[in-house]
């Protein structure tokens, strides 16, 4: 288990490093001149040259890469080209918002998917059909459309929940809950479609296993066979899909944040992309890939805990 974990951490660090490096060189191969873009068409050549020197763009790409990497290792993600604020400050301010969204959506997804998946696998009937339809609907309706719909109904028409804005948990827990309810629910619909289909499939598969028949031959209560034994053995497959959903949820959150006016990581990335703010987008990529690695690590730990073959070895 320990070496397994160590290997996973090493490959996670490698993933972060490779991603950061590739992204850096991708953004360095620029056709347009960032200094000119920042200053606008009226700036003189001298002003542009001065700006280039200020941004360090007069140095070689390799030098810039080493400088940036050195900064990253010291927790300095450089400065935004447009707001002149440290990227670290911007990213740390945005992170809690996006995490609130994505983590709530993951928790909701896990709970709803297990219930739907198990019940539809065991009972069949209308609920099973409903899950099958949901798997298509969840595929076909992008989460930001669900968000727009929820926003129109619950915020604009009914006025029950806020349409935009974020309230930090530390300021007002209830306000926090109301500010993330609609976006989190919007994200959850698509994720539930995927994860509940997986849970249903793996439950059906596990229920067909020999040991389930043997457990039944022992006269154990059906509830215990289903919820203790079958669910436990079906869990790893669902957990794997759930951890992959985390990546999809971040993509979804980028767009959802705009719908609900949440100044999270997605809004940072969007403004970086529309302004051509390279240090900011680099910071966002580094943060996101680190999150993905951490979540994968967590999923590996849980999988190891669920699977005695991994845990004992």
């Amino acid at each position: 288990m320990f070496t397994f974990l160590l290997r996973r951490i090493a490959s996670g660090v490698a993933l972060v490093f490779v991603t950061a490096t590739v992204t850096f060189f991708l953004t360095a191969m620029t056709g347009s001149d960032p200094a000119r873009r920042i200053l606008g068409p009226t700036a003189t050549l001298d002003e542009v040259a001065a700006k280039q020197a200020e941004l360090g763009l007069d140095q070689s790409v390799l030098q810039r890469y080493l400088d940036w990497l050195g900064g990253v290792l010291h927790g300095d993600l450089s400065t935004s080209w447009f707001t002149n604020e440290p990227v670290t400050t911007l990213v740390w301010a945005a992170l809690p918002i996006t995490l609130s969204l994505v983590v709530s959506a993951i928790v909701l997804t896990a709970v709803i998917s297990v219930v739907l998946g198990v019940v539809s696998a065991v009972r069949g009937g209308w609920l099973d059909n409903a899950v099958q339809v949901l798997s298509i609907v969840g595929f076909a309706i992008p989460s930001f459309l669900v968000g727009l719909l929820l926003s129109v109904v619950f915020a604009v028409q009914l006025g029950i929940l806020p349409a935009i804005g974020y309230t930090p948990f530390s300021v007002d827990p209830v306000g926090w809950l109301t500010s993330i309810t609609l976006p989190a629910v919007a994200l959850t619909v698509g994720a539930v479609a995927t994860v509940s289909t997986q849970t249903r499939g793996s439950m059906i598969e596990v229920l067909g296993q020999d040991y389930v028949r043997t457990l039944r031959s022992r006269g154990l209560p059906t509830r215990s066979i289903l919820l203790k034994h079958a669910l436990r053995n079906a869990a790893p497959a669902s957990l794997t899909v759930l951890s992959l959903q985390f990546i999809a949820l971040i993509s979804g959150a980028v767009v959802i944040e705009k719908v609900f006016g949440l100044n999270g990581i997605g809004q940072l990335a969007t403004s970086a992309a529309s302004q051509g703010d390279v240090p900011l987008i680099l910071g966002v990529v580094l943060l996101v890939v680190t999150l993905v690695v951490l979540v994968n690590l967590l999923a590996d730990l849980l999988l190891g805990w669920l699977n005695p073959k991994v845990r004992i070895a």
Partner: peptide, 17 residues
């Protein structure tokens, strides 16, 4: 490696350029 990245973030990186 590619599958570990959120698709939209990759696209935003490209559009930044």
């Amino acid at each position: 490696l590619l599958m570990a990245q959120p698709a939209i973030i990759i696209l935003l990186v490209v559009l930044t350029q």
